[in-house]
């Protein structure tokens, strides 16, 4: 009795192998598509914007005339924003991560905080804008200041740095903690002197990613009512300001063709900042990888 017709199996084998190769190529093409889009996007932006990008562009204030427009106020505004977001998120994010990983008991309250954080990460950024508008701009009367925008952005990117810091703290080997406790160190001494130094690369990487998300966001700031056009520089965190994405948004919406070039030049500046920050993150990650 022969249940399997080997000749038939062999015949089918050919088509099965062919479809394997066909789909492999198809999957490969799909993956390449993503890379291709990235390439086209960068190519377009650079060819459009490079003509407007010069030293003057970084130094000029925004203007009604495309050839005189510059990003100075927006660039400085973005740096101010980073100045608020970085310390606030680092403090709140690392604090939360330490609490959850080192102190919190494994109970329902802790699980609730954890679930809450992952849900916050999924809330659309524009909703954070509504929160900021109500709480910081109006209730705390901060107006459309750097502080109001900074707090709003901090809350938006908080989940990123919390999760990254938790991962980093979790990765610190138990043996190091034991060694420290074994010397008679208290819990806080152990965290401060052993756990945090060992977790710092992961925390910094997460912090930089969070910060780059914060300086690339536009929607919440539009909702807060940040000006699209501002011709003076802020002097303190209570001043009005604008940032690069807002400025780019403003230029993109202009009907004149030239302003699209100016917008592209603004995008180059923004992407350059992001690339620098990400390179730092990658450098930190590689430098400190697998130390234990």
């Amino acid at each position: 009795m022969k249940l399997i017709d080997h000749a038939k199996v062999l015949k089918q084998m050919k088509s099965r192998k062919a479809s394997n190769i066909f789909f492999k190529l198809l999957f490969m093409a799909a993956t390449t598509f993503g890379l291709l889009v990235l390439g086209i996007l960068l190519y377009r932006v650079i060819t459009q914007g490079i003509g407007y990008l010069d030293f003057q562009f970084l130094q000029n204030l925004p203007s009604r005339k495309p050839e005189q427009a510059g990003v100075k106020t927006a660039l400085i505004g973005t740096i101010w924003l980073m100045g608020v977001v970085a310390p606030v998120t680092l403090l709140l994010g690392v604090g939360t991560a330490i609490y959850l990983e080192e102190y919190a008991r494994k109970n329902r309250f802790t699980r609730f905080i954890q679930v809450n954080i992952s849900n916050l990460a999924g809330v659309p950024s524009i909703v954070f804008g509504l929160l900021g508008l109500t709480v910081f701009v109006r209730a705390l009367a901060l107006g459309t200041s750097i502080l109001a925008a900074g707090f709003t952005m901090s809350l938006l990117v908080l989940p990123i740095i919390i999760v990254a810091s938790q991962e980093a703290i979790k990765a610190v080997p138990k043996e190091l903690r034991e060694a420290s406790f074994g010397m008679g160190a208290t819990k806080w001494q152990t965290i401060l002197n052993v756990v945090l130094p060992a977790a710092i690369p992961g925390i910094l990487t997460g912090g930089i990613l969070a910060l780059s998300r914060a300086i690339g966001e536009t929607a919440p700031l539009v909702v807060l009512g940040l000006p699209l056009f501002l011709a003076f520089l802020p002097k303190s965190v209570f001043d009005m300001f604008t940032v690069l994405p807002m400025q780019i948004y403003n230029w993109t919406g202009r009907p004149q063709e030239e302003f699209q070039g100016v917008a592209a030049a603004g995008i180059i500046v923004l992407l350059t900042m992001l690339i620098i920050m990400n390179s730092i993150a990658v450098y930190i990650r590689n430098k400190f990888q697998k130390r234990y």
Partner: peptide
């Protein structure tokens, strides 16, 4: 990592890309 870069591009840049390209 390249895919991650794609995910990290600010959405305003994508908006510009949609409108002008």
């Amino acid at each position: 990592p390249i895919l991650e870069v794609l995910a990290g591009i600010p959405t305003i840049v994508y908006g510009f890309f949609a409108l002008t390209f």
